Amino acid sequence: MQKIKIREVFSYYLPQFHEIPENNEWWGNGFTEWSLLKSAAALFSGHDIPKVGELGYYSLEDVSVVEKQYQLAKQHSISTFAFWHYWFGDNEKLLHKPAELILSSDVDVKFCFAWANHTWYNKSKGLLLKKQRYDYDIKKHFNYLLPFFMDDRYTKIDNKPVFFIYNPREATNCALFMDTFNKMAKEHGFDGCFFIAENSDVHIAEYYGFDRFLNSCNFMKGRSLQQKITDKIRIILNKKIPVCLRKYDYSERMQRFSANVDVAHNEIPVVFPRWDSSIRHGRRGVVLTNATPAAFAAHLDQCLLKTAHIPESERLIMIKSWNEWGEGNYIEPCLKYERKFLEIVKSKIEIM
C-alpha cells in the first residue's frame, strides 16, 4: 500500500503526568498518571501490562520532555498533539501547566486543544470531585485561549484555530459557545474557529455547525446481542464486587468500529493503537486483546482507505492516543514494542 497524503494527523495528549494539588488531595500525595501504571497488575493469563520505553517516567513540568515527544511524533507522521483542556468555569482549570510552559518557551511543538467538558468523579467511591459548569463567561474562556490561538505553533485549518469539544450533547452552552468563539476569533484576524465534535455523529455536527466530527467513544458499538447481554450482567455484578473483566479481540472490535466511518459527511477516522482500561478501573475495565503491531497496521489501513476518495486537503486522522497510559491507550514507545507502532504510521502516511 502506497503512502497516503494526510493534511493533519492528530493525537490526543494527556497532560496528567505532573503533580497538582487537587490530585494529591483526591488520590494521595504524589499522584500522577504513572501511579496507575505502576500499581497495575495482570488479571488473566497472558495479560500484558505495559511498561514504559525510551522516554521513561517523565514529568511534564519539564517542557523539554514535550518537545522530545513531539519530535518523535513528527518523525513518524503525527503532526499535532491535541492537548486535553480542562475548563470547568470562570478561570477554573486543571492540568494547564504543560501547555502554558509550551506557550512561554520556544520549543518546537505543534498543538491544539480538546476541551474535555465532563465532570470529574471518584467512581469507586461515588464522590464528585470537580463539576463541569456551563453558566460561565465564555469571553473569559476565549481570552485565556487567545494567546495560544495566536501562537504560530497552534494548529490552524483555513485560518481557523482548531478546537475540539469532547461532548457537545452535554454542553448546554454549545451554540452560544461556538458563536462567541467564532465572533471573537474573527475580531482577532482569524476566519473563525475550526470546531471538531467528539463523541458525536453527523446529526450533532450538522445541528451545531461543526466543521468535522468523530466518535472515539464508539468502539464498543456493533457487539452481538449475546455480547451485550453478557456485558450488561458483568456491569451489574461489578457494581457490587468487581470481578468480571470484559475482554474483546482488538481486530474484531476495530474492524467493526471503523467500518461505518463516513468521511464523505465530515467524519474523522479514529485509530486506536490499543486499549486496556483495567489499568485505571481494575476488573471493571475493558481490555482489547491481541493488539499487536500487525493488527494495528491492518486497522490503520482500513482507516486510511476511508480517506482515499476525498481531496487530500480535507484528509484528517485522529490517533487515540499519544500517552493515555492509564487506559492502556498509547502510541509512544513501550518496552515491548519500542517504536514499532510509530514506524507503522510513518510507513503509511505522508503529512502534506
Rank of each mutant, 00 (worst) to 15 (best):
M1H: 04
I4D: 06
R7V: 03
L14I: 08
L14D: 01
F17R: 08
N23G: 08
E25R: 04
F31P: 03
W34K: 01
K38Q: 11
F44W: 10
D48G: 07
E67S: 11
K68E: 14
L72V: 12
H85I: 09
E92M: 01
L94C: 04
P98G: 07
I102Y: 12
D106N: 15
F111H: 12
A114I: 09
W120Q: 05
W120Y: 08
Y121M: 11
Y121P: 00
Y121W: 14
S124D: 10
L127N: 04
L129K: 13
Y134F: 15
Y136K: 00
I138K: 12
K140S: 14
P147I: 10
F149W: 06
D151M: 05
I157Y: 08
P161D: 05
P161H: 05
F164A: 00
N167Q: 13
T172R: 14
A175T: 14
D179M: 01
H188R: 10
G189K: 05
G192L: 08
I196R: 06
S200K: 03
A205E: 04
Y207E: 10
D211Q: 12
F213V: 05
S216Q: 13
C217T: 07
C217V: 08
N218I: 00
K221M: 04
R223C: 03
S224Q: 02
Q226M: 11
T230V: 14
T230C: 02
D231S: 15
K239F: 08
C244T: 13
Y250E: 01
E252N: 00
R253T: 09
M254Y: 03
R256K: 14
A259V: 00
N260T: 00
N260A: 02
V263P: 03
D276N: 15
R284E: 03
A298D: 13
Q302V: 02
L304Q: 09
L305M: 10
L305P: 01
A308K: 15
I310K: 02
P311Q: 11
E312H: 06
R315T: 11
L316C: 00
I317K: 01
E324C: 13
G328S: 06
N329K: 14
I331N: 07
K336P: 04
K336T: 13
R339F: 10
F341C: 05
M352Y: 15
